[in-house]
């Protein structure tokens, strides 16, 4: 009903969607990289360890990427603000 609620709901839905998407992607990726032996039905301990490592590493990689991305965006924003200030400062004079 009120705008803050609905935008919050939208955010929640969005992050849930993101979570599901990354879940599926992770499953596919780690399965493809870790599971090669189809002579047995059960998951071998090495395969289990490999998939868990794969997941953990991917999460850490994601963390690092988002950190770097944020840094980049902050720098880009600062540049844009500085350019805007320059423009607005030079126009009236």
């Amino acid at each position: 009903m009120n705008p803050p609620m609905s935008s919050d709901d939208g955010d929640q839905m969005r992050s849930f969607k993101d979570f599901l998407a990354s879940y599926n992607k992770l499953s596919e990726l780690c399965f493809n990289d870790c599971i090669f032996d189809f002579t047995t039905r059960s998951v071998k301990p090495t395969e289990d360890q490999c998939s868990l490592n794969c997941m953990e590493k991917y999460m850490k990689m994601n963390q690092r990427i988002s950190q770097r991305f944020q840094e980049y965006q902050m720098i880009a924003n600062e540049g844009a603000i500085a350019a805007a200030q320059k423009l607005s400062g030079s126009v009236p004079r």
Partner: peptide
Amino acid sequence: RMTQACHKKCIPPKYKDAEL
């Protein structure tokens, strides 16, 4: 897309260790 590309180019598909 960037995440996918950099994962493919930088992380070899050998997962002996969970650390980067």
